[in-house]
Amino acid sequence: MALRLPGQWVWDSWFVFDGQKHHAFYLQASRGLLDPNRRHRNVTVGHAISNDLKSWTVVADALAPSESPAPDSWTTWTGSVVRDEAGLWWMFYTGTSREDAGERQTVCAATSPDLITWTKVTNLPVAAADTRWYKTLAAGFDNEPFRDPWVFKLPGQSEWTMLITAGSPKANSRREEAVMGVAKSKDLINWQIQAPLGAPGQGFGETEVFQFEIIDGVPILLFCCSSQWISDERKAAGEIGGVYSLPVSADLSDVDFKRAVLFPDTSLYASRLVQDTNGGWNLIAFLNNVNGEFVGELCDPIPVTADPVKGLVPKV
């Protein structure tokens, strides 16, 4: 497998290429916890480097929770990495705090000159759910989903876009509340929260780990959803959850999750699209449940392409 650690489970990951080598950042937790469900609250962000997306050298961990009080005093969850115009690397990640009993999720950030040593920015968080459009604790909900920030620039735009896992306060039920949170920034530190894309009631209770890429000319929105959060209609069609893709317009003006397509390999979860040095696109995800047991390791890169109707498909 691409990345299996003897002492840690590995799950959600995100990748960046520095011009010479690929860097993987990933959530990890000790296998000594015994119960894989405990990993979510006992997590750090690991870091490994590769020439080929297959053989990885583990280096020093990138991030760990802050001391209380802080928005990331309990966990440092899934994120993404970009490089600004001055050459500084920015990691955006999800924080939860002990002060909020872990129920409030916000977007935090750290910077690095070399992708190795990371310094958290001051005045965290950099983005949080707005009660006008998203579920919040302040509005009386029992949790505040606002996580998995994917930061990038849409084609032809100079400002940065952030896509976020979020929940709508207008949903009829928990299993219908998923929307895609959106924020915009000109400088990566000051973010303006915007109305979500998609709408509640489009087939999902959670849409996690977003990514936008143009794959062989087809704009694709990638996300995942576990079995307990997919609609009865999708379950009736035989779906059990996993990795989903959604063909969209290049400006994200037509996001309708009802058109999302399940990727064939349902043992995978929290996938990323990663371009190799030859320009080909690959899917990398963690192996989730196999034969009823959690695996917790990253798969080898799976070459993929995209179809305007079928979405993301294995390349043959």
Rank of each mutant, 00 (worst) to 15 (best):
D52T: 02
S80Y: 07
G181A: 06
E293N: 08
E67T: 13
V255S: 01
D254G: 02
K153L: 06
D72G: 01
A110L: 05
A29P: 02
N123C: 04
T122P: 06
G217L: 08
A2H: 03
V43S: 03
H22Y: 15
C299R: 00
W74V: 04
S168D: 10
L283H: 00
A64G: 12
G198V: 11
V59K: 06
V295G: 00
K186I: 03
T44S: 06
L246V: 10
G311C: 04
M1G: 12
R39G: 10
I193C: 06
A2G: 13
R272N: 14
A101Y: 12
L273F: 14
T266M: 04
A29W: 11
K54Y: 04
P196Q: 05
G201N: 10
G79C: 02
V309E: 11
D100T: 15
A24P: 01
F223V: 10
R39K: 13
G167N: 11
A129S: 09
V274Q: 05
S68T: 14
V81C: 06
V304R: 00
T165R: 12
N289F: 15
L283Q: 03
N172P: 00
D307H: 12
L5S: 13
P125W: 13
D216T: 10
A166M: 09
Y26V: 01
H22S: 06
G292C: 02
I240M: 09
E85D: 15
R147W: 10
W90T: 04
H47V: 05
P69S: 04
A128F: 13
G87M: 07
I220Y: 09
I214E: 15
S13Y: 05
I193E: 07
G7C: 02
K315S: 14
G156N: 12
T161M: 12
D254S: 12
I116R: 14
G32H: 08
T207G: 03
L283G: 01
V82F: 07
L53A: 03
P196G: 09
F146E: 09
L124K: 12
L298C: 05
A109E: 02
T78D: 15
Q105P: 00
P65V: 11
Q105K: 05
G292F: 12
G95I: 08
W9R: 01
V121S: 10
T277W: 00
A64M: 11
Q228M: 11
L27D: 10
N37F: 07
I240W: 02
T78N: 14
T106E: 13
R83P: 01
C225I: 06
T96W: 04
A60G: 15
S66T: 10
A24E: 08
N282K: 01
T78R: 09
M162C: 14
W90M: 02
P219T: 12
A139T: 08
G87R: 08
S73L: 08
L33S: 03
R41G: 09
Q157E: 15
E297D: 11
E208K: 02
K258Q: 14
T305E: 10
T96K: 10
K184P: 00
W90A: 03
R41E: 12
Y26C: 02
G217E: 12
K135V: 14
Y244C: 04
A2L: 06
G32Y: 06
A250P: 00
H40P: 00
Q211I: 07
G95W: 13
P308W: 07
A64F: 08
K153W: 08
S13L: 04
L188C: 03
P155V: 09
F263C: 03
